[in-house]
Design a protein around this nucleic acid. Structure first.
Lengths: 225, 225
DNA sequence: GTTATGTTTTTTGTATATAATATACGGTAA
DNA sequence: TTACCGTATATTATATACAAAAAACATAAC
């Protein structure tokens, strides 16, 4: 049975947005598992709201691909096969490459400084063995590059893909050792960006994602999914 | 004032889907112009339905980026600046390249035949001066390549981007001469796919989109937007 | 004439009620 | 026992009703 927390209605935001975020987090974090049904009435009751905003939130989850709707039957959390995640990573690889290449051409000095700061914090997390923090800093690092690309459409598509990657990690690979090579690769990308060398930056980021994909595929094979 | 046709309720489909398609077509074809407001009550009245399915359709349009919602204020059709379309084309370029490269590795003989058939029809349209038909065949050609990529996530993202490109064409470039070079470029891509030469296919498709982008940018400059 | 403020109107946000459909269950006949 | 049909129930789809916020307008004060 799906369980979600009661809502906190602090700052004013439409209920649909609050509910959307709540459900989204619950799905990404694995609290609601693939295949589980989302029933409007029960969700609405648990959250203490009516069905209307719940429906709207579910529509948005569907648009993100996190849930699947069948008309007149209902909604369930989308399954996430290894084929799915490979598909996502293929797309993400191409877009990450584009983002890094654009960023090399357009990045502002202040954005470089922000990247350096994030990278330092990443290293510090790794040294302390704080994996959760390292993952967060890894995400931040890439987000900062996306932002520096100056292409808002690209940022939007990538942020939607990111959710799926993260969801996959949570479901299958809680213990994935992310720090391997990553620190060094980030360092190199950072240098290429600093030099404004778009070609090299693109190449490095392509490799970076490919390595991640390989690590995931290998981890999957070990678990023989 | 936004005008939409009354709905035909032939085959059974949820109203929200019918409404979504209706509005989507109206926006893409330019019948509803950028900046125009979408008011739930008036749309619902015109279509002879209640506000509920209209709202749900609007939520989906928002997810596609075709409209922009401001809480408690309303919804309006998204503007489409030349920056926007360049952003979209940059992303599409990267993904088209990926799709073509994957297709070269995975394409089935039967899919090759389908591509050849579409390409023949494209040529025939061009010869007859049937530009509308040629544009349709151009779209079909690329769709067939996407399908051959075997990556459903990629197909999804590309189909959403496509809408924006098409919308842009309709709004700004009704007379864009699409046939220039396109026939020859399609021919070359087709050959690379037939040979399974992923590298060459990728390169060709990258060029293909870049040429399209250049043509659009040039057309924009002539209109000094 | 202009600005500020109070009131009306319009429009969206949320809740609830009704309709339609799918599913589950039970009974009956082969 | 099994297959089929019908009814009951659960759930979504749509409609409507009510609440709250924003915008438009008018009026009064300066």
């Amino acid at each position: 049975m799906v369980k979600v927390p009661k809502l906190k209605l602090d700052s004013y935001q439409p209920l649909r947005d609050v509910i959307f975020e709540t459900l989204r987090k619950a799905i990404i974090s694995g609290d609601i598992k693939p295949g589980e049904r989302l029933m409007e009435v029960s969700l609405a009751e648990q959250m203490g709201v009516s069905r209307t905003p719940v429906r709207e939130a579910i529509r948005r989850l569907e648009a993100e691909g996190l849930v699947t709707m069948v008309p007149r039957k209902g909604t369930h959390v989308s399954e996430l096969s290894s084929k799915d995640i490979i598909d996502v990573l293929e797309v993400r690889g191409a877009l990450d490459k584009l983002a890094t290449s654009l960023a090399a051409k357009r990045v502002q000095p202040q954005q470089i400084r922000a990247l350096e700061s994030i990278h330092k914090q990443f290293i510090s997390c790794v040294e302390k063995g704080n994996m959760e923090g390292a993952i967060r800093k890894d995400i931040e690092f890439h987000d900062a590059i996306y932002a520096a690309s100056g292409n808002s459409r690209l940022i939007g598509v990538l942020s939607s893909l990111k959710e799926h990657v993260y969801r996959f990690r949570v479901i299958y690979l809680r213990d994935l050792n992310i720090a391997e090579h990553v620190e060094q690769e980030h360092q190199q990308i950072l240098e290429a960006l600093r030099e404004g060398n778009a070609e090299r930056a693109a190449e490095l980021s392509e490799n970076h994602i490919r390595n991640q994909m390989d690590a995931i595929v290998e981890a999957l094979n070990q678990k023989k999914l």
